[in-house]
Design a protein around this nucleic acid. Structure first.
Lengths: 124, 124
DNA sequence: CATTGATATCGACAGATGCCAATGTGGAGT
DNA sequence: ACTCCACATTGGCATCTGTCGATATCAATG
Protein backbone atom coordinates (compact mmCIF):
# COMPACT_ATOMS: atom_id res chain seq x y z
CA UNK A 1 0.00 0.00 0.00
CA UNK A 2 1.39 3.31 1.17
CA UNK A 3 4.47 3.68 -0.95
CA UNK A 4 4.94 7.40 -0.90
CA UNK A 5 4.41 9.59 2.10
CA UNK A 6 7.05 12.27 2.56
CA UNK A 7 5.36 15.35 1.22
CA UNK A 8 7.41 17.89 3.15
CA UNK A 9 9.79 18.96 0.45
CA UNK A 10 10.49 20.80 -2.08
CA UNK A 11 12.17 23.91 -3.20
CA UNK A 12 11.71 24.49 -6.91
CA UNK A 13 14.01 22.74 -9.32
CA UNK A 14 15.98 25.89 -9.92
CA UNK A 15 17.10 26.16 -6.32
CA UNK A 16 19.56 23.34 -5.96
CA UNK A 17 19.94 20.02 -7.78
CA UNK A 18 17.72 17.19 -6.60
CA UNK A 19 19.53 14.50 -4.71
CA UNK A 20 19.23 10.96 -5.99
CA UNK A 21 16.53 9.96 -3.52
CA UNK A 22 14.15 12.81 -4.21
CA UNK A 23 14.76 12.50 -7.92
CA UNK A 24 13.84 8.82 -7.83
CA UNK A 25 10.65 9.46 -5.91
CA UNK A 26 9.54 12.39 -8.02
CA UNK A 27 10.45 10.66 -11.26
CA UNK A 28 8.03 7.87 -10.38
CA UNK A 29 5.26 10.43 -10.01
CA UNK A 30 6.08 12.10 -13.31
CA UNK A 31 6.30 8.73 -14.98
CA UNK A 32 2.81 8.02 -13.74
CA UNK A 33 1.66 11.22 -15.46
CA UNK A 34 3.65 10.28 -18.54
CA UNK A 35 0.93 8.19 -20.13
CA UNK A 36 -1.84 9.85 -22.13
CA UNK A 37 -4.55 7.65 -20.63
CA UNK A 38 -3.39 8.27 -17.07
CA UNK A 39 -3.02 11.99 -17.66
CA UNK A 40 -6.57 12.14 -18.97
CA UNK A 41 -7.76 10.11 -16.00
CA UNK A 42 -6.22 12.65 -13.65
CA UNK A 43 -7.75 15.52 -15.58
CA UNK A 44 -11.17 13.88 -15.61
CA UNK A 45 -11.08 13.16 -11.90
CA UNK A 46 -9.76 16.64 -11.11
CA UNK A 47 -12.43 18.38 -13.13
CA UNK A 48 -15.29 16.09 -12.20
CA UNK A 49 -18.14 17.40 -10.10
CA UNK A 50 -17.57 16.92 -6.40
CA UNK A 51 -13.87 16.35 -6.97
CA UNK A 52 -14.33 12.65 -7.45
CA UNK A 53 -15.22 10.16 -10.16
CA UNK A 54 -16.09 6.49 -10.10
CA UNK A 55 -14.46 3.96 -12.37
CA UNK A 56 -17.61 3.74 -14.43
CA UNK A 57 -17.22 7.41 -15.31
CA UNK A 58 -13.73 6.67 -16.56
CA UNK A 59 -14.25 3.50 -18.53
CA UNK A 60 -16.92 5.35 -20.48
CA UNK A 61 -14.38 7.97 -21.55
CA UNK A 62 -11.77 5.68 -23.10
CA UNK A 63 -11.42 3.08 -25.79
CA UNK A 64 -9.26 0.84 -23.65
CA UNK A 65 -10.64 -2.05 -21.64
CA UNK A 66 -11.85 -1.87 -18.06
CA UNK A 67 -8.90 -3.87 -16.72
CA UNK A 68 -6.56 -1.41 -18.35
CA UNK A 69 -8.29 1.52 -16.67
CA UNK A 70 -8.08 -0.33 -13.39
CA UNK A 71 -4.39 -0.89 -13.92
CA UNK A 72 -3.78 2.80 -14.61
CA UNK A 73 -5.75 3.78 -11.53
CA UNK A 74 -3.57 1.49 -9.47
CA UNK A 75 -0.43 3.15 -10.81
CA UNK A 76 -1.76 6.63 -10.06
CA UNK A 77 -2.76 5.53 -6.58
CA UNK A 78 0.60 3.93 -5.83
CA UNK A 79 2.54 7.10 -6.52
CA UNK A 80 0.19 9.14 -4.36
CA UNK A 81 -1.66 11.10 -7.02
CA UNK A 82 -5.05 9.55 -6.33
CA UNK A 83 -6.95 8.10 -3.43
CA UNK A 84 -9.93 5.78 -3.61
CA UNK A 85 -12.94 5.05 -1.51
CA UNK A 86 -15.52 2.33 -1.93
CA UNK A 87 -19.16 3.24 -1.49
CA UNK A 88 -21.63 0.45 -2.16
CA UNK A 89 -20.69 -1.15 -5.45
CA UNK A 90 -18.78 1.82 -6.75
CA UNK A 91 -15.23 2.95 -6.12
CA UNK A 92 -14.65 6.69 -6.20
CA UNK A 93 -11.28 8.22 -7.00
CA UNK A 94 -10.12 11.71 -6.12
CA UNK A 95 -6.88 13.53 -6.59
CA UNK A 96 -4.44 14.33 -3.77
CA UNK A 97 -4.09 18.11 -3.97
CA UNK A 98 -0.94 18.15 -1.84
CA UNK A 99 0.84 16.03 -4.43
CA UNK A 100 -0.31 18.23 -7.27
CA UNK A 101 0.81 21.28 -5.31
CA UNK A 102 4.23 19.75 -4.71
CA UNK A 103 4.76 19.02 -8.38
CA UNK A 104 3.48 22.42 -9.41
CA UNK A 105 5.81 24.16 -6.98
CA UNK A 106 8.72 22.00 -8.09
CA UNK A 107 8.28 23.03 -11.71
CA UNK A 108 7.72 26.67 -10.87
CA UNK A 109 11.00 28.26 -11.85
CA UNK A 110 9.50 31.63 -12.66
CA UNK A 111 11.40 33.39 -9.90
CA UNK A 112 14.77 32.00 -10.85
CA UNK A 113 14.97 31.75 -14.61
CA UNK A 114 12.47 33.70 -16.63
CA UNK A 115 12.62 37.25 -15.31
CA UNK A 116 16.37 37.50 -14.64
CA UNK A 117 16.38 39.96 -11.70
CA UNK A 118 19.20 42.08 -13.07
CA UNK A 119 22.82 41.09 -12.64
CA UNK A 120 22.80 37.47 -13.77
CA UNK A 121 20.53 37.62 -16.77
CA UNK A 122 20.81 34.46 -18.85
CA UNK A 123 24.53 33.87 -18.96
CA UNK A 124 27.17 35.21 -21.40
CA UNK B 1 13.73 18.33 -35.01
CA UNK B 2 11.04 20.64 -33.75
CA UNK B 3 8.45 18.22 -32.48
CA UNK B 4 6.57 20.39 -30.05
CA UNK B 5 5.68 23.98 -30.58
CA UNK B 6 2.18 24.91 -29.46
CA UNK B 7 2.72 26.44 -26.08
CA UNK B 8 -0.44 28.54 -26.00
CA UNK B 9 -2.57 26.37 -23.76
CA UNK B 10 -3.51 25.45 -20.83
CA UNK B 11 -6.02 25.89 -18.16
CA UNK B 12 -5.22 23.84 -15.08
CA UNK B 13 -6.18 20.22 -15.02
CA UNK B 14 -9.10 20.90 -12.74
CA UNK B 15 -10.81 23.13 -15.26
CA UNK B 16 -12.00 20.72 -17.90
CA UNK B 17 -10.73 17.32 -19.03
CA UNK B 18 -7.82 17.33 -21.44
CA UNK B 19 -8.71 16.31 -24.94
CA UNK B 20 -6.81 13.43 -26.47
CA UNK B 21 -4.42 15.62 -28.41
CA UNK B 22 -3.29 17.79 -25.54
CA UNK B 23 -3.06 14.77 -23.27
CA UNK B 24 -0.80 13.01 -25.74
CA UNK B 25 1.49 15.99 -26.08
CA UNK B 26 1.71 16.71 -22.36
CA UNK B 27 2.12 13.06 -21.49
CA UNK B 28 5.24 12.97 -23.62
CA UNK B 29 6.67 15.85 -21.62
CA UNK B 30 5.84 14.22 -18.30
CA UNK B 31 7.25 10.96 -19.53
CA UNK B 32 10.48 12.79 -20.27
CA UNK B 33 10.54 13.95 -16.66
CA UNK B 34 9.65 10.45 -15.50
CA UNK B 35 13.20 9.17 -15.39
CA UNK B 36 15.41 9.87 -12.38
CA UNK B 37 18.45 10.69 -14.48
CA UNK B 38 16.54 13.07 -16.71
CA UNK B 39 14.84 14.75 -13.77
CA UNK B 40 18.21 15.34 -12.16
CA UNK B 41 19.58 16.65 -15.43
CA UNK B 42 16.77 19.21 -15.55
CA UNK B 43 17.37 20.18 -11.94
CA UNK B 44 21.10 20.54 -12.49
CA UNK B 45 20.66 22.67 -15.59
CA UNK B 46 17.97 24.77 -13.92
CA UNK B 47 20.05 25.45 -10.85
CA UNK B 48 23.36 25.87 -12.62
CA UNK B 49 25.07 29.22 -12.66
CA UNK B 50 24.12 31.31 -15.67
CA UNK B 51 21.10 29.14 -16.31
CA UNK B 52 23.04 26.75 -18.48
CA UNK B 53 25.28 23.73 -18.20
CA UNK B 54 27.49 21.92 -20.66
CA UNK B 55 27.42 18.18 -21.14
CA UNK B 56 30.71 17.86 -19.35
CA UNK B 57 29.08 19.29 -16.22
CA UNK B 58 26.42 16.60 -16.45
CA UNK B 59 28.50 13.54 -17.23
CA UNK B 60 30.54 14.35 -14.14
CA UNK B 61 27.39 14.17 -11.98
CA UNK B 62 26.21 10.68 -12.93
CA UNK B 63 27.37 7.12 -12.94
CA UNK B 64 25.93 6.44 -16.36
CA UNK B 65 27.98 6.66 -19.53
CA UNK B 66 28.35 9.72 -21.71
CA UNK B 67 26.22 8.26 -24.55
CA UNK B 68 23.43 7.67 -22.06
CA UNK B 69 23.55 11.29 -20.90
CA UNK B 70 23.53 12.39 -24.51
CA UNK B 71 20.49 10.22 -25.15
CA UNK B 72 18.61 11.68 -22.19
CA UNK B 73 19.46 15.20 -23.32
CA UNK B 74 18.05 14.40 -26.72
CA UNK B 75 14.80 13.22 -25.15
CA UNK B 76 14.49 16.34 -23.01
CA UNK B 77 15.21 18.52 -26.03
CA UNK B 78 12.70 16.74 -28.24
CA UNK B 79 9.81 17.39 -25.89
CA UNK B 80 10.75 21.04 -25.56
CA UNK B 81 12.10 21.10 -22.03
CA UNK B 82 15.66 21.99 -23.00
CA UNK B 83 17.43 23.92 -25.71
CA UNK B 84 21.06 23.58 -26.70
CA UNK B 85 23.68 25.82 -28.15
CA UNK B 86 27.13 24.90 -29.33
CA UNK B 87 30.01 27.17 -28.41
CA UNK B 88 33.42 26.00 -29.51
CA UNK B 89 33.76 22.36 -28.54
CA UNK B 90 31.13 22.49 -25.84
CA UNK B 91 27.35 22.22 -26.05
CA UNK B 92 25.42 24.18 -23.47
CA UNK B 93 21.93 23.20 -22.42
CA UNK B 94 19.37 25.44 -20.78
CA UNK B 95 15.80 24.91 -19.73
CA UNK B 96 12.79 26.38 -21.54
CA UNK B 97 11.03 28.37 -18.82
CA UNK B 98 7.80 28.62 -20.82
CA UNK B 99 7.47 24.85 -20.82
CA UNK B 100 8.14 24.63 -17.10
CA UNK B 101 5.58 27.36 -16.52
CA UNK B 102 3.01 25.52 -18.60
CA UNK B 103 3.44 22.32 -16.66
CA UNK B 104 3.44 24.13 -13.34
CA UNK B 105 0.23 25.94 -14.22
CA UNK B 106 -1.34 22.74 -15.47
CA UNK B 107 -0.73 20.99 -12.16
CA UNK B 108 -1.80 23.96 -10.09
CA UNK B 109 -5.21 22.94 -8.87
CA UNK B 110 -5.04 24.98 -5.69
CA UNK B 111 -7.90 27.22 -6.73
CA UNK B 112 -10.24 24.39 -7.56
CA UNK B 113 -9.60 21.55 -5.16
CA UNK B 114 -7.62 22.24 -2.04
CA UNK B 115 -8.99 25.34 -0.37
CA UNK B 116 -12.69 24.75 -1.06
CA UNK B 117 -13.96 28.37 -1.27
CA UNK B 118 -17.19 27.64 0.56
CA UNK B 119 -20.07 26.04 -1.22
CA UNK B 120 -18.40 23.21 -3.11
CA UNK B 121 -15.79 22.14 -0.63
CA UNK B 122 -14.12 18.86 -1.52
CA UNK B 123 -17.32 16.84 -1.43
CA UNK B 124 -19.01 16.01 1.89
C1' DC C 1 45.99 17.48 -42.36
C1' DA C 2 46.71 14.43 -38.32
C1' DT C 3 45.51 14.66 -33.53
C1' DT C 4 42.96 15.45 -29.54
C1' DG C 5 38.96 16.45 -26.78
C1' DA C 6 33.81 17.03 -26.50
C1' DT C 7 29.60 15.38 -27.94
C1' DA C 8 26.34 12.65 -30.89
C1' DT C 9 24.75 8.44 -33.20
C1' DC C 10 24.45 3.39 -33.90
C1' DG C 11 23.52 -1.45 -32.74
C1' DA C 12 22.37 -4.65 -29.48
C1' DC C 13 20.27 -6.42 -25.37
C1' DA C 14 17.89 -7.01 -20.76
C1' DG C 15 14.17 -5.30 -18.41
C1' DA C 16 10.02 -2.44 -18.03
C1' DT C 17 5.39 -1.11 -19.85
C1' DG C 18 0.66 -1.08 -21.83
C1' DC C 19 -2.76 -3.85 -23.50
C1' DC C 20 -6.29 -7.52 -23.52
C1' DA C 21 -9.03 -11.90 -22.35
C1' DA C 22 -10.05 -14.61 -18.63
C1' DT C 23 -10.93 -14.93 -14.00
C1' DG C 24 -11.49 -13.41 -9.12
C1' DT C 25 -13.86 -10.53 -5.46
C1' DG C 26 -17.19 -7.98 -3.00
C1' DG C 27 -21.62 -5.75 -2.40
C1' DA C 28 -26.67 -5.43 -3.42
C1' DG C 29 -30.92 -7.37 -4.74
C1' DT C 30 -34.04 -11.32 -5.56
C1' DA D 1 -28.01 -18.98 -1.71
C1' DC D 2 -28.02 -17.45 -6.42
C1' DT D 3 -27.34 -13.80 -9.59
C1' DC D 4 -26.02 -9.47 -11.40
C1' DC D 5 -23.07 -5.64 -11.39
C1' DA D 6 -18.80 -2.84 -10.54
C1' DC D 7 -14.25 -3.33 -10.09
C1' DA D 8 -9.61 -5.72 -9.30
C1' DT D 9 -6.15 -9.24 -10.35
C1' DT D 10 -3.70 -12.56 -13.23
C1' DG D 11 -1.12 -14.24 -17.17
C1' DG D 12 0.63 -13.66 -21.51
C1' DC D 13 2.35 -10.93 -25.29
C1' DA D 14 4.16 -7.25 -28.29
C1' DT D 15 6.38 -3.06 -27.87
C1' DC D 16 9.02 0.51 -25.72
C1' DT D 17 13.01 2.10 -22.82
C1' DG D 18 17.49 2.64 -20.54
C1' DT D 19 21.95 1.23 -20.89
C1' DC D 20 26.47 0.28 -22.81
C1' DG D 21 30.51 -0.29 -26.18
C1' DA D 22 31.90 1.04 -30.52
C1' DT D 23 32.07 4.47 -33.73
C1' DA D 24 31.13 8.92 -36.05
C1' DT D 25 31.09 14.09 -36.10
C1' DC D 26 32.65 18.52 -35.03
C1' DA D 27 35.84 22.14 -33.42
C1' DA D 28 40.24 23.69 -31.95
C1' DT D 29 45.22 23.01 -32.13
C1' DG D 30 49.70 21.76 -33.63
Amino acid sequence: MELLETLECCSPLAGEPLDTEHAARLARVFKALGDPVRLRIVSIVASHGGGEACVCDLTASFDVSQPTISHHLKVLKQVGLLTSERRASWVYYRIVPEMMAELSALLDVSGALSVSPAGRGGGR
